[in-house]
């Protein structure tokens, strides 16, 4: 199942719905990287709240996406990792150290807004 991406001002929101297979992660990555560049987006929020497992492949895919988007000059926030999923990830040994994660969409956006504010005042 393809992941829908919505544009909201300078941000993009990708909401993963239900189960997705490996190939969908690769599609999502390509689509996001293109859309960030096309829309000159400042930030991306990826909502994973509907995922009931995040294994090492999914985690690596998310990390790669965030890194690519960062290279384009935008920021990524992963939101909605479920409590059970978080426990399974830690036990598996996955930590997503270098990635911003937030509780939900709202927190994700307020993080991006704050972070953009800082960047703009720097410019």
């Amino acid at each position: 199942m393809q992941v829908p991406i919505m544009k909201q001002g300078p941000y993009l929101i990708a909401t993963i719905q239900g189960e997705i297979v490996d190939e969908d992660f690769i599609h999502l990555r390509t689509k996001l990287v293109r859309m960030v560049s096309k829309n000159r987006s400042r930030g991306v929020v990826i909502d994973v709240s509907s995922l009931d497992t995040l294994d090492s492949f999914a985690t690596r895919s998310l990390r790669d996406m965030a890194k690519m988007i960062e290279l384009q000059g935008a920021e990524t926030v992963i939101v909605g990792i479920q409590p059970d999923v978080a426990l399974a990830m830690v036990r598996l040994g996955l930590f997503l150290k270098d990635i911003i994660t937030m509780m939900d969409l709202e927190d994700g956006f307020s993080y991006l807004k704050k972070s953009q504010g800082k960047r703009i005042s720097h410019d």
Binding site: T53, L54, D55, D84, V85, L87, A88, L92
Partner: peptide
Amino acid sequence: SNLEMTLIATAISELTR
């Protein structure tokens, strides 16, 4: 439990991959 189901599903995901 839900948690146990998630742990099992994650292990299965890793090994089948």
